[in-house]
Amino acid sequence: MSTTSLTDRLGSLLMAPVHLLMRIIDIPLRAVQKAAGIGGMAAVFLAPNMLIFGIFVLLPLVINFVYSMTGGTAFFISERNFVGAEQYQRLFTCTNYLDPMSCQEDAFWTAVGNTFWFVVLQVTLMIGVSLITALILNRDLAARSFWRAVFFFPVLLSPVVVGLIWKWILQRQGLLNFGLYQFGIEPYTWLTDRNWTFIATIGVSIWAHMGLYTLILLAGLQAIPKDLYEAAEMDGTKPERVFRRITLPLLAPNLLVVVVLALIKAVQIFDEVYVLTGGGPGTSTLYLTQYIYETGFASTLRNPGLAAAASILMGLVLVVLTLIQLGVGQRSEKKGKR
């Protein structure tokens, strides 16, 4: 009995500041509710969040759009002159649309081309590698939790750390060349070969992000009832047909989410590549975000207006991809309800 009353007393002691706080808040909130009405309270509670969203998301979006309509090198908007759609026009001025070098802003189109191929190859490989990894991790492996952690670990790393780790491995006097040298293979300059660098950026970004997609696919695989596989086994279904007719269709909602997420992430690729290759050699790994960053901030002839215009275009692409994701999400939700 005495212990109960002691814990009771301790509990009420701990709750005292909470009660006090609630009483203090109660007075102004009652007044607010009187003024706004019950219905208006929803808006009152949403206001702080909407304020943060407005300041940090909506406002920069508007400012960015305004920047894209201005010219000059000045950063302050008051010192910039209005040029209308000139920046967009500049981005789209080409003599031959199939040849980036014929465009006025050739670096932009090189970056667009690089990003396009990067996205196509990286997302395709990413899905394949994540799916295979998820399928393997879904089996009765020894130390399964350990392997799951191993594949997820890179997701926790900062992109800069990812870039530095792989630079350390791939540079001329790096770990890879050291390993190859032990087998009598001549060291190679991986990070100065245009093709290898492109492949390296794909490989490194897959390594860095596949853990998350593997996890999503693994969750999908584990949600497929074991009974279905046993029923297929009783029916003498070949493994290839089980995968094609049972696993893949039932994993489809997860796969679609992964595809869209990977697409969006791939379009935004920047930090790890910037640390690893700096966009080089030449412009072989110059991707869109890096182009925007360099045009707006880093280059000696910086042009914030042009960078803003390019980022608006990139934003449009991301909006389209996000809409697809929303559509996919709603469709699979409907399917789930049926």
Binding site: D227, L228, E230, A231, M234, D235, G236, T237, R245, L250
Partner: peptide
């Protein structure tokens, strides 16, 4: 598969993405 037996599972184990006809035909 080769024992010539058929099983009815407690959870029914029907393939949710296939029609009834496809479920029956699958095996």
């Amino acid at each position: 598969a080769d024992r010539g037996l058929a099983m009815v599972f407690q959870s029914y184990a029907l393939y949710p993405h296939m029609s009834v006809r496809q479920n029956l035909a699958f095996g």
